[in-house]
């Protein structure tokens, strides 16, 4: 079990100065995540979910403590090394989808592979494979503006999964979707998690997401209130 740990945080703090005070967004977070986990951070708004995901995703660095992701020490990573880590091993899914507006669906999904320098043939094969997973192969030529919210988020999932990253970080992926689309997307992610062994880490306060989780970590005011394994429905 210990050998499988791919994310580890130890005594993580994140503080933001606010006038004379400081906001403590993360307060002594120590967590482990193993390969193939399907885990969620839950908690009220402002509890530090996004902040923790950003640090694990090497987009941000902690004020104190350490985070190790796939053997990389996040707090001492250069911005170039961090970009490399994200490029190779981490997929992001955002609440607002964040598709690149002038690119087609195909080009959006292709983007991470371009950065990895794969050949056109390889890229095409992998993009269509990813689009098949999310059931959007027929919309490859569409522009993001022509897609519904659910479809957009599925494109975003395809973009995150296409390079077969070790970790996918999803910050409130269903917040802008209706119930039906939310379930659809979560089922897709569960399947990908099982088939590819990708570690999924969510942040959410959506009960629909929670019922799919196999591990639920509750954050309150920046610290871990509970960390429990659950039986998904």
């Amino acid at each position: 079990m210990k050998n499988d740990v791919i994310i580890e945080t130890r005594g993580l703090f994140k503080r933001y100065p606010l006038g004379e005070h400081t906001i403590v967004a993360l307060n002594d977070i120590s967590l482990h995540f193993s390969k193939s986990e399907f885990a969620g951070l839950v908690g009220p708004s402002g509890s530090g979910k996004t902040t923790l995901l950003n640090i694990i995703g090497s987009l941000d660095s902690p004020s104190e403590g350490s985070a190790t992701v796939l053997g990389n020490q996040i707090e001492s990573l250069s911005s170039r090394k961090a970009a490399e880590l994200r490029n190779h091993h981490i997929g992001f899914i955002f609440q607002t989808f964040n598709l690149l507006p002038v690119y087609s669906v195909f080009e959006n999904v292709e983007f991470p592979l371009l950065l990895l320098g794969l050949s056109a043939d390889e890229r095409k094969k992998m993009v269509f494979e990813a689009l098949e997973w999310v059931n959007l192969a027929d919309r490859a030529k569409s522009k993001p503006a022509q897609l519904s919210g659910g479809q957009s988020q599925r494109v975003a999932i395809a973009r995150a999964i296409v390079k077969r990253p070790a970790i996918i970080l999803a910050d409130e992926p269903t917040a802008n979707l209706d119930a039906e689309n939310s379930h659809h997307i979560l089922k897709t992610m569960v399947t990908l998690n099982k088939e590819l062994g990708t570690t999924f880490l969510f942040s959410t306060h959506d009960a629909k997401v929670v019922q799919y989780l196999r591990r639920k970590i509750s954050l309150i005011d920046g610290h871990v209130a509970s960390d429990e394994l659950c039986q998904p429905a």
Binding site: L59, E84, R86, P112
Partner: peptide, 10 residues
């Protein structure tokens, strides 16, 4: 921000 998250350096 998205480009950076996808692994493009600043």
């Amino acid at each position: 921000g998205t480009l950076m998250a996808l692994g493009l350096t600043r």
